[in-house]
Each structure stands twice: as C-alpha cells, then as structure tokens.
Write a protein that binds this DNA or RNA. Structure first.
Length: 124
DNA sequence: ATTCTGACAGCAA
DNA sequence: TTTGCTGCCAGAA
C-alpha cells in the first residue's frame, strides 16, 4: 500500500497528509450539538498535542468551506471564546452557543467542564 | 527558499 | 496569583 509520505497518526481516513485542516474540520463537525471542545483536544486527537495553534488556524480557513463548521463549539482550554472575534461580529459565537443551550458569561462558557467533549475519549 | 504569522498550551519568573 | 516567553506545525507573503 502506498502511504503518501508520513502517516503521522492512524486517523488519516484515506486523505492526504496535507489534510490536517480537513481532519480538523471533520472532528469539529463531529462535535455533538450543545457540546464544546478545545483546540488542544482536537490537536491531540490528530496526533500533535502541541499543535493547537494549527487547529485554530484551520478553523480560520473554515469560513471558506462550503459546509457548515461548528467552529463556535471550539474554544481554548479555559473555555474562553478566544475566536469569537472571527465570527464576523463578536457576539455571533456567543449567540450560536446560546442557541444550543450553552451559557456564555464574560466570554467564558459556563459549566465548560460538563459540556466539554473530548474527541479522543468520546469518539475513540 | 526564507520569514512571519496564527481562533493555543505549557512552563518559568 | 498573574504576566510573559517559548514551543509547536502549517500556510501565506
């Protein structure tokens, strides 16, 4: 079998290695309604636990994606809506979360720990 | 090819 | 405790 270059992790889903972004999009889409996760969790699930910045960068490109990416369900490890500014209006992200029953106070998700969804544990 | 940036996270002071 | 720097990896200029 021809492994296109470096297969970093088992989860390549037959995609090209350069589809780091695609993997991020997939995981992000897998986030259940009303749940949230962190950049680091996704990064770690992808195999590079310390490439959390890449996750955010990928989500930045998610705007160019034809499909809907629930990027509002991805926050930093503090549960803080650090990327809300990228949703057009600074209130869009909070509204989207509130629409799913997620309470956001002072740009922080309330009960973040309860709503946290770990792809590595939940998905497996 | 080289340099800078980026929606983070971890560790040091 | 808070503040700041570094590490990480990939894409854009």
């Amino acid at each position: 079998m021809k492994r296109t270059g470096t297969s970093k992790s088992s989860i390549n889903r037959g995609r090209k290695d350069s589809d780091f972004f695609a993997m991020v999009y997939e995981v992000t889409r897998l986030i259940p309604y009303g749940r949230v996760t962190s950049y680091g969790a996704i990064a770690r699930y992808l195999g590079s636990g310390r490439s959390a910045r890449m996750v955010g960068w990928a989500l930045n490109a998610s705007h160019s994606r034809p499909e809907f990416i629930p990027a509002h369900r991805v926050v930093n490890r503090n549960g803080m809506l650090t990327g809300k500014h990228h949703f057009g209006n600074s209130t869009t992200m909070q509204q989207l979360l509130a629409n799913e029953g997620i309470i956001v106070a002072d740009d922080c998700i309330v009960n973040f720990r309860e709503l946290f969804w770990d792809p590595g544990s939940e998905l497996n």
